[in-house]
Design a protein around this nucleic acid. Sequence first.
DNA 1: ATTGAGACCTGTCGGC
DNA 2: TGCCGACAGGTCTCAA
Length: 281
Amino acid sequence: MPELPEVEAVRRELAPAMRGARFRRVIVRRAGLRTLFPDRFAARLRGRTVRGLVRRGKYLLADLSSGETLLMHLGMSGSFQVDHPAPGRVSIGVAKDVGDAHDHVVFQMSSGATITFNDPRRFGVMDLVPSAALDQHAALGAMGPEPLSRDFEPQALARVCAGRRAPIKVALLDQRVVAGLGNIYVSEALHLAHLSPRRPASRMARPSGTPRESAVHLVRAIKTTLERAIERQQNPRYRSARFRVYDREGQPCVTTGCDGAIKRITQAGRSTFYCPVCQTG
DNA sequence: ATTGAGACCTGTCGGC
DNA sequence: TGCCGACAGGTCTCAA
C-alpha cells in the first residue's frame, strides 16, 4: 500500500512515539534483509534520540542525535505497528518474543512504545546515513520535488519532462520527476486530469519550453489526488474507499457525463488503468 | 541519455 | 483440495 499518502499516514502515527524518544533497545530479527543493513545497525541506534521524523517522497527520515539519519522505506509490503504500554501496567522491558514471521525489526523506545517493522516481501529498506550526506544518497539526492510543495509547479514539470519519449504514466513513476507517486496514484491523477497515460511526457512542454495547459491540469490533479488520499487516510472509515480507475477494469467511468468503461493496459511492465473516452488530453 | 526487461521476495487469487 | 501461473502498491541494475 505504500505510496506518498500511506507513507505520510505512517509518519503521523510514528512521530508521537519516536520524536524526542531514545532507542532503548533495537532487535533485528532477520539479518541479511535484502536491504543491506549496515554493520552494527542496532548498536548504532541504541541510546540515540530521535530529533524529528520527516517524509521525503516514499522515504521516512528519522534525524538522530548521533548526526546520522535513519532512513526507512516500506517497499511494496512494509508496515509499522506501534504498541503503547497498557495504561496502569508496568512495562517489564522485554521485547515481544513471539511475532509474525515477517516482523524484521523492533524498536523499543524510551517513550514506552514498541515499534515493529513487518515486511513479507522484503523490498523495504532501513539504512543509516550521515545526516550531512543525505543529498549524496543515490535515491534521495536525485529525487524530484515534493508534489505538495510550491516547488512542484507546471514549469518544473514541463522542464523535467522535456525530451522524454516515455509516456507520461511511466515518467511520473520516476521518482526523479516528482517524488512519492506510485502505480495507483499516477493512474488516479491522470484520470482526474483527463489526460491519456500514453501521451508522451515531452508534450507537457511546448517546443519553446513553456508548460502546456496539460501540465497545469496535471500538477493540479496530482496535488488534489494526494491531498484527498491523505485526508482519507485519517478516517479509517474511508481508507478502503474505491479508486476512480485503479483496479476497476471494465467498470463504468466515474466522470460526470462520461459513459466509458475503465480499461487496463501494460506500460513498462506495470498495469495502467484509464478511461479511453474521457482521458484524451 | 533514456528505456525496457529482469531481478529481488512472498503472498494471494483464479483457473484447471 | 491441490497445484500452477499470473500478478501485486517499489526500485535497482544491466543491456540495448
